[in-house]
């Protein structure tokens, strides 16, 4: 801040200023100012603050949870997930019955009455990320692994050529058996039963996961440009709502912070706290329990943003600052020293 006197500010005028500034500042005393110096000082302050925080606190960078981690640490949960995806169980599979952009069926797409942006987007753009979970997340990776294990290929062929009803019977029996399964030397052991080729397939999935090759199989699928691949959709969706995904992040919980999420960074770090105003709506039970919770929250935030955007044009709301009078604190010197004089000079 420049030290100034009333005489100093009277000696300055608006020479060189544009018409809008001249009009706005008519009668207002001016003070000397150095824009570049102020910018450099603020930049220096920010730079020092950031460097100190970076050196002292650093930032979090915890490794991902991948199929190899889960297959190794929680083989039973891994197999339950794979079997659930094959069975199109929407409690296990993130994309079962999801609708756009992964499938064409819009019956499960979120909507509020006639407002159905996901369905509208499908009509405009089509199904932009098509995924058939049993085929793309289970069958095709197994067919790729069958190159190293012909018996696995025979099991997949047998399953694929069976009727949907037969597949369902095998899967139901196997998934029921998983509830009493045990793990021996990393393998999942189920009681003897008629599971058709399913037990063999799930064992193949477990071994594929444990090998670290499952994500590669996803990336290579339907990709004529492989090994170039940036789209991790299948790899990330495989576990995204299944318990092993969160359970396997035990290394994070061991770090003392089991709570993470969009606004909660891992460890004791601030996350994207500026999204709190968005995230907080999910804490409202009536919203959180709704089938269309995401669309409700998106709708609320859209309305709030539009209000923020056009606030200057909304009678009543635009007068709030004048009512709460916080400005008197920020402009206290003005009201104390200059306001009366400025009025008389206009």
């Amino acid at each position: 801040m420049n030290v100034r006197t009333t005489e100093d500010v009277r000696a300055l005028d608006l020479l060189g200023a544009g018409p809008r500034a001249r009009e706005n500042l008519r009668g207002v005393p001016l003070k000397p100012y150095d824009l570049l110096r102020e910018g450099i000082v603020v930049f220096g302050f920010v730079l020092i603050l950031v460097v100190v925080l970076s050196i002292v606190l650093k930032a979090p960078d915890y490794p991902t949870v991948n199929a190899e981690n889960v297959a190794t640490m929680q083989p039973l949960a891994f197999v339950q997930t794979a079997a659930g995806i094959l069975a199109q169980d929407s409690d296990i599979s993130a994309v079962a019955d999801y609708g756009p952009p992964y499938g064409a069926d819009t019956s499960a797409a979120e909507h509020i009455g006639p407002i159905a942006p996901a369905a509208w987007a499908k009509d405009i753009f089509g199904v932009t990320r098509p995924i058939d979970p049993p085929r793309d997340l289970i069958i095709r990776p197994l067919q790729r692994a069958a190159a190293l294990d012909p018996a696995l290929g025979l099991a997949v062929d047998r399953y694929a050529s069976a009727t949907a009803q037969q597949q369902g019977v095998w899967l139901a029996a196997y998934r029921k058996a998983l509830s009493t399964a045990t793990v021996s030397k990393g393998d999942v052991v189920v009681a003897p039963g008629d599971y058709g080729p399913v037990a063999r397939m799930m064992d193949g999935m477990l071994r594929l996961g444990r090998s670290g090759l499952l994500e590669g199989a996803f990336a290579a699928d339907d990709n004529r440009y492989y090994p170039y691949s940036f789209d991790l959709t299948k790899a990330l969706l495989f576990f995204s709502i299944a318990s092993p995904y969160t359970d396997s992040a035990t290394h994070l919980q061991q770090l003392g912070n089991p709570q993470w999420g969009i606004v909660h960074e891992t460890g004791n770090y601030p996350g994207a706290w500026w999204l709190d105003a968005y995230q907080v709506w999910y804490e409202v039970p009536a919203i959180a329990d709704a089938d269309n919770a995401d669309l409700i929250v998106v709708g609320i935030m859209t309305v709030l943003f539009v209000v923020l955007l056009v606030l200057p044009l909304i009678p009543g709301l635009r007068r709030i600052p004048h009512g709460v009078k916080v400005y008197r604190l920020i402009w206290r010197d003005w009201y104390r020293t200059y306001a009366a004089e400025a009025r008389s000079r206009e």
Binding site: P60, D61, Y62, P63, T64, V65, A94, Y98, P100, P101, A109, E110, P117, A118, W120, A121, K122, I124, F125, G126, T128, R129, L232, L236, L237, S240, I241, Y245, A249, L252, W260, G261, I262, E265, T266, G271, N292, D294, L295, V297, V298
Partner: peptide, 23 residues
């Protein structure tokens, strides 16, 4: 890393519900 993995799978639902997920 883990944070981006988690956020990507969580944020997709809002994007998809809003129709933005198509693009």
């Amino acid at each position: 890393n883990w944070d981006s993995q988690w956020i990507a799978t969580q944020a997709k639902d809002a994007m998809n519900a809003a129709g933005i997920g198509a693009i």
